[in-house]
Design a protein around this nucleic acid. Sequence first.
RNA 1: CGAGUAAAUUGAAUAGUCGCUGGUAUACUCUUGAAAAGGAGUUACGAGAGGAAAGUCCGGGCUCCACAGAGCAAUGAUGCUAGAUAACGUCUAGUGAGGGUAACCUUAAGGAAAGUGCAACAGAAAAUAACCGCCUCUCUAAUGAGGUAAGGGUGAAAAGGCGAGGUAAGAGCUCACCGCUGUUAUAGUGAUAUGACAGGCUGUGUAAACCCCAUCUGGAGCAACACCUUUAUUUAAGAAGAAAAUGUACCUGCUCGGUACCUUUAAUAAAUAUUGCGUGGCUUGAAAUAUAUAGUGAUAUAUAUUCUAGAUAAAUGACUAUUUUAAAAGACAGAACCCGGCUUACAGAUUUACUCAUAAA
RNA 2: GGCCCGUUGGUCAAGCGGUUAAGACAUCGCCCUUUCACGGCGGAGACAUGGGUUCGAUUCCCGUACGGGUCA
Length: 114
Amino acid sequence: MLKKNFEFRKVLSKGKYYSGDNIEVFILKNNKSLNFIGLAISTKTGKAYIRNKIKRLIRENYKNLEKNLKDGYNIVFLWKKNKSTENAKYSTIEKDMKKIFDKANIIQENKEKI
RNA sequence: CGAGUAAAUUGAAUAGUCGCUGGUAUACUCUUGAAAAGGAGUUACGAGAGGAAAGUCCGGGCUCCACAGAGCAAUGAUGCUAGAUAACGUCUAGUGAGGGUAACCUUAAGGAAAGUGCAACAGAAAAUAACCGCCUCUCUAAUGAGGUAAGGGUGAAAAGGCGAGGUAAGAGCUCACCGCUGUUAUAGUGAUAUGACAGGCUGUGUAAACCCCAUCUGGAGCAACACCUUUAUUUAAGAAGAAAAUGUACCUGCUCGGUACCUUUAAUAAAUAUUGCGUGGCUUGAAAUAUAUAGUGAUAUAUAUUCUAGAUAAAUGACUAUUUUAAAAGACAGAACCCGGCUUACAGAUUUACUCAUAAA
RNA sequence: GGCCCGUUGGUCAAGCGGUUAAGACAUCGCCCUUUCACGGCGGAGACAUGGGUUCGAUUCCCGUACGGGUCA
């Protein structure tokens, strides 16, 4: 997990930007052997109950897709401000994340075979 | 059956797969260490958000502010009575006032005769009332000098109300009824209620304007505070010397009261600020559940049983199946030191007591 | 998480118990000019929201919503 404020700034300023229908993603290379995730959802999207729900859904999706990803990246997920919170469902987020990881060429298809 | 009032409860359940955060362990593996003990991971067991966790509007615990003390002032809060409570601006039971056909609901409800201020426009006049009108005297008349609050219209508010007597015209000037004020008797712990007697009753409204009276009130807040650690700055306990005051600084605006004060030296300590995926504070508590007793009730007492989140970029989720449902798991919504209340948001369901209306007997 | 402030036309803002709620920029119309700008005249447009006190509330009191500041 990313925790500190300067870590987020590095990723947001230097990382590459990808956008789905509801989610925005920033990705940076990291020289370590693990992936680090950061979640940031502003208070303007909703109240605390809704923000917690979105965080959980993103984390669940990431767990299911984590096996297929390459190692050594910092990834930051954001929620788009204009989108209504009714779209926050498991299936819609899954589509966005798959699209984005395809574009970014992070997916490692041969991992399971090896 | 319909319309409604009050109080209380609930806030989907079960199974499977994957995954998250603490706790426990004579468990297993690795590791630091002389040892005691500690750290990381795995496994097993068991636990894991609300009625409002929310707003931060009140009250308390707890911590610090010198040892947090006394008095006065100021500021602020409360304001019918009696009680409950650790405390409260909360709650309970009553009183008065207002609303509703009723069940029932609302109510910051002391003092305007201690003083000050304000009352726009309209109106003669907004608190020392004479514009029109009515009446008397002077006079041909106008005018002038007086008396008068019954009538007029203005306004949110107009000088106790209505009737009779009385009068030049009028007037609590007198009287009956009502209202008001005071005294007193009875009932009640009390607010107050009921009755009797007396006073003719000049003195509007506003205190959620200043103010007066009564009661209470030191300040800051777990990002408090304590400890460890990184870095920097400043200071001086002890020793020696100097100085000693109706002084200076701080604690609190003032008084009392309290603490400190200047110079030199070396080494250590302390203070302040700062660094940290730091540690504690952190969850056993005015605790929860059940029963009994006392009380109209808030609540109190006793007994038994239970241990029930403790995170820090912040844990409860996702998927599948079944049940309830006409169908869809759906409303409001996420603990952050902890309690007692208040306020606000809320789909659906259930229970109890009561009222009104309609119909029938 | 705690503690504090604020909300008046599209924007910046005065007012603070009373009569039509000042003013500036912007906007609309007319005039001026060959035209535009500048200038002149006129118009439209607001007290965040729900209750209470008061004869009367933008103002006083209480609640709610929204916005902002500060503390490691």
